[in-house]
Structure formats: structure tokens, C-alpha cells
Design a protein around this nucleic acid. Sequence first.
DNA 1: TTTGTTTGGTAAACCGATTTAGTAAAGTAT
DNA 2: ATACTTTACTAAATCGGTTTACCAAACAAA
Lengths: 334, 334
Amino acid sequence: MKNVTMADVAEHAKTSKSTVSQYLNKRYEYMSENTRKRIEAAIEELNYHPNSVARSLKQKATYTVGVIVANILHSFSTHIIRTLETEFNKQGFHTIICNADDDPEKERNYIEMLLAKQVDGLIIFPTGENLDLYEQMKDRDFPIVFMDRKVDAQAIDTIMLDNHKAAELAVDRLTAGNYRKISIITTSVIRNISPRIERIEGYRQALQKYSLPVREDYIKTADAEHLQDVLRELFEMDAPPEAILAANDIVLVEVLKYIKEKNLSIPDDVAVIGIDEVPFAAFFTPPITVVEQPKIEMANLAAELLLKKINGQKEGGSPTVHRMQPNLIDRHSC
Amino acid sequence: MKNVTMADVAEHAKTSKSTVSQYLNKRYEYMSENTRKRIEAAIEELNYHPNSVARSLKQKATYTVGVIVANILHSFSTHIIRTLETEFNKQGFHTIICNADDDPEKERNYIEMLLAKQVDGLIIFPTGENLDLYEQMKDRDFPIVFMDRKVDAQAIDTIMLDNHKAAELAVDRLTAGNYRKISIITTSVIRNISPRIERIEGYRQALQKYSLPVREDYIKTADAEHLQDVLRELFEMDAPPEAILAANDIVLVEVLKYIKEKNLSIPDDVAVIGIDEVPFAAFFTPPITVVEQPKIEMANLAAELLLKKINGQKEGGSPTVHRMQPNLIDRHSC
DNA sequence: TTTGTTTGGTAAACCGATTTAGTAAAGTAT
DNA sequence: ATACTTTACTAAATCGGTTTACCAAACAAA
């Protein structure tokens, strides 16, 4: 069955393609009532649906944005995606979601594919390795917003948690509970992923604020698959930590797994605090205290900034890192 | 800065668009080594990237598939999405993910938008309300696979859990633990969403298998927001249930919230079993017994079926409902 | 020498919209 | 009656690729 095109509609309605196009774009001033009705009828009768690929080619706009998350397994990413999608959809934009799996090569492929597909803008949780690509896009003034992580070499609008503050909030809470031997665990820090670095920095500074010693062997980083090993090391130390700051939700899950397995009790044997809210924190036994990111605001701001760029509004100032404030949800794990 | 097109490359390489196109499609037999090198150099020098919108228009293929999930909040959906995206990406396809939020109107819009965008195929978790659209696509032989839910009126390939079996497995486990007053709770059943209906049916049949009475007041359905009310009702009954079968992950979360709030103990005060695996089940206190869906297999099968249709392979038989087998993960909540 | 084949290439149509420039006919102003 | 507007419409160019049909030159075969 042949596809119905605008030419078919025009023929059927005894008018020209141009007029049908005007009709579709609701510029009714350019035609008589009679013509309009004939077009309406023809569209109905032929069950015509415009081809937006053709439209995009001519208009040089696809009304589609790309989102490349570094790792879709973080519940933070999932929530951001959901809000972004809803927001873009409201504004008539489609969203293509890609998962770079923390692999710079995959990220490169996705960026190239999305650009070839002529997306109108990009939101990226950058791996930080594809500087040349970031640079190119910036030079072209291609609409782009970074999320969650900053890339030092690039002056690109970026939305990030105030990670120093987040770690500080956690340490504040822990010291208030009289824990002094505090460990921080985060996922791998090769490639200097900025939020992880910053959370460790924030932790160090907060300890210093309380004149607590910073013990390097309390600072642990590892891939998700090796976190159990790291935890074992930690608890086999002469002076194991009294409290653990899980620097993201993946770490928190591994920490709780380990604790369950070793039959330790929270907070008596170890106190636990996490950065990133997770769905089970509220009804866990005990409920887990957590520092949450303002996900909705972050996603909304990202969408807003990107749409502004797409609509060609010259940005007020130069590219900024927008720092969002974390929030402590105090429960009973410390 | 003007965009670089194939014409620019041709000019720069002193050849024709046709030859450049052949080059891009790796049909090197049609040109001399010398020409090939010149094209290569020109592409490099101009930093040319082909426009896939133009290509799609001519080829009538976008190498993009759409996925419309009914509700992205189910962890099941998230996992399916992840696997689908990975799988399609392997095969050179992009994935556009949309969330219908269980709203048939949103679903309709998404289907229409994705078709206008000329996606090559569609995977839908159908709301079940847009029969006319489903029908149209089927009539056109448009590649489409249903996931998780079936639509009775439509003969469209569908991938579903064996929901009767899933509920039966849960009841088996509960009766083995000597629980006899078993309640099932599921999210709203208006619009006859098939997996929910089937799980309730499976529950009834399983009770009958054990000659246990089927009490209608133990069968509860409600929107996520009203589940707490439903739980209150349930536990304020004269004979409250000894065990709860949470028919999906959203219900499970609400059940555990309620239990925590009321300070009930699992499994002594109430036993709990869920359908759908969740990340915290393994290290919850107590670890939650759960019937899991073979998500990976389901997503892989869906991708495989869809790609076959897209590649025009005539399907062996008529459209089928593919029933996948659930699996009990026995832990300590019953 | 003539014919056939291979090699290396190009011009132009095409995909299905949008948009610009132009025009015929009718209406209005002077 | 003439000039100017407005109304209603269309032809054709365009977006950036792909593909088909065709061709000239070089070479081989008869």
C-alpha cells in the first residue's frame, strides 16, 4: 500500500501542494473557506499523516533532543530522565535517551549519531573524555547542557549538586551523632569524575572543620563489582570505621548488602548515611538517613536552559556551573 | 557557519555527489583508488558528517524504533528499556523512549508522533484503549510488538509473563509456609489491564487448588495513591490476612511502608511475597521472597521479533502471545 | 577493424515536505 | 477608466542525501 503524501491530498482536493502545506501550518488566511474544507475532507478521506522527516529536512529542526546519561543504573539518572522527558514533551520536543555506560567510546558514538540525526540540542552527563567533540559543539554554538558532572576544560553550562555541601551535611549529621571514625566510599575515581572527587573533598574539609583526623585508609573507591572487597578490607582493619558515608546509591546498596550478610546492626555496629535518595530508604530497618539532590529542580533547570539555547535566546552571561543545594533527610541509620 | 554537505565534499574532491555517496556507502568498486583518497581527504579536511535526516527521507528508513512504556515507574519497565536500548544499539538502531503514564491519550499522541517521525518499528506496553490505531498499524503491516499486556481484540505479537503461573508460584510458597488467609493487592484494574487481571485469576485458581476459600474482601485493587487506605481497611478487618501477595513492585513498596509504619513484623505478623524483583529485596530485613519475571529474556525476545519484522522476514506463523516463565526467589518474608 | 566488456565516473530524478516569488481575478479608491 | 490592493492560489526551488540510467575511455576478443 502506497504511502499518502501531500501531493495526493492536493490532487484529491483539487488544489496545490503549497496550499495544503499552508493548511497544515494553520495559515488559513491564504485560502478560501471552500478550499480549506476540501483539504480537510481530503486529509480525512485519505487518512493522511505528514512525514516529519521531510519536514525536518527542509526546516532544519527535528524537535528532538538527545539525552546521554553516563550510567542509567543510578536512580538519580532515572529520575532526571523522567522529568526531562515530561518537560520536553510539554514543549513539543521528543527525547532520545542513550546510556553511555560510563564508556567514553560509547559516548562518542552516541554524540555523533545524535548530531547526524540533527537533534536540536543535547543534555549530557559527560564522561569527560571527549574533549574534542565537546569543543566542536561549543564552537558551533550547538545547544548543549552538561548535567551532574563538569568538564574543567570546557565553558559549557553545567548543572551540578553542591557536592562539597552534600558531603559536609553528611559529616555534620554523623559528628552530631558522635561518630568520629567516619569512612567514605565511592565508585571508581579514575577519570576524575567530578562529583566523586568533590564529595571526597567535602568530606575531608568537613572532618577538618571538626578537627577530626583525615585517615586515608578510610577513603575508599572502587568499581561496583569490587565494593564488597573494599568493605571487607575496611572492616578487617584494626580500627574499623564507626560510620560509613556511601557517596551514591550504588555504593549504598552494596554497603547494606555487606552489612546484612555480616549480620551487623545499624546504627549500633555501624552508622550509615547515603548521598542520593532511594525508594526503600524510608521503610528500611532502620530507615536510612540520606542527603538528597533536588532532582526535579535540576532536571527542570536543564530543560529550561537547553530550550532557551534552542530557541536562540542569547544567554545573559557566560556559561555557568549552576550549583544546586542538597537536603538532609534525617532518619534513623545514624 | 554554514553546514558542510555532500556537494561541498564533492567539489573539494573534484568529483560528483554520486561518487561521494558511493564512497560513504563503502561501494568502493565504483571508483579509483585515487578518487577514494581524494574523497577521504576532503571529508577529513572539511570535517564532514552526513545528515541522516536527508538519508532517511530517501531511504524511507530511519534506523530508529520507538518504545512506549505504560508506566516508567515500574522497575520492570526500567529494566526492559535498558535491555532493549542496548540490544537495538548493537544492531545499529536508535531508540526513542516514551512514557504514556497509563494515559491512553498520551499513548495516542506518542504513537502518532513516532509514526510521523517514521520510526521503523514500535514496542508498546499498551494501555489497551487505542484499538483503532493498533488496527491501522496491523493493517499496514507496520512492525510492532506488544509487551507485558495483551489486547484481546488484536492479533499482534505479544510478550507476556505467564501471570497465572506467577500468582500460583506465590500462593504455592505461601501455603507451604502454612498461611491460609492470603490477600492479593494490585494497582487499579479499571481498563482491565491484562497482567493484573491474570494475576488475580491465578491467585483464585491457586487457592482453589488448595481448597482454600476465595474471599472477595481479600482481593484489593487501587491506584498507587490509595493503597495505604486499602491496606488500612485490610488490617482493620475482623480476620485480617496472614499473608499479602503484592502483585507488583509499586504495591510491594506501599505494603512495606505500611508495615513499617504500623510496626508490624514480617513474617510473624504478616507474611509478604511480591511479584517483580526489586533491588532491595535481597538485603531487606527480612529479605523479601519474590516471583521474578525473566526481564532480560523478555526484552531480548521483543527486540528480536521486532527486528525480524523490520527486516521484512515473513513470520513463521500467525501472531502469538509469547508466555514467559516466572521464577520464585525464595527468601525469608514468608 | 569491429564488437563487447570493464572501469570509473556523472547528471538528474527522487524522497516529501516548506517557502519564495509571482500572478490572475476581484474589489476598492480616485 | 485607471491604478492600487487584496484575495486566493500555484510553480518551482530547496533541504541533503540515494539511486538509476547513461556514457566515455580503455582494453580485450573475434
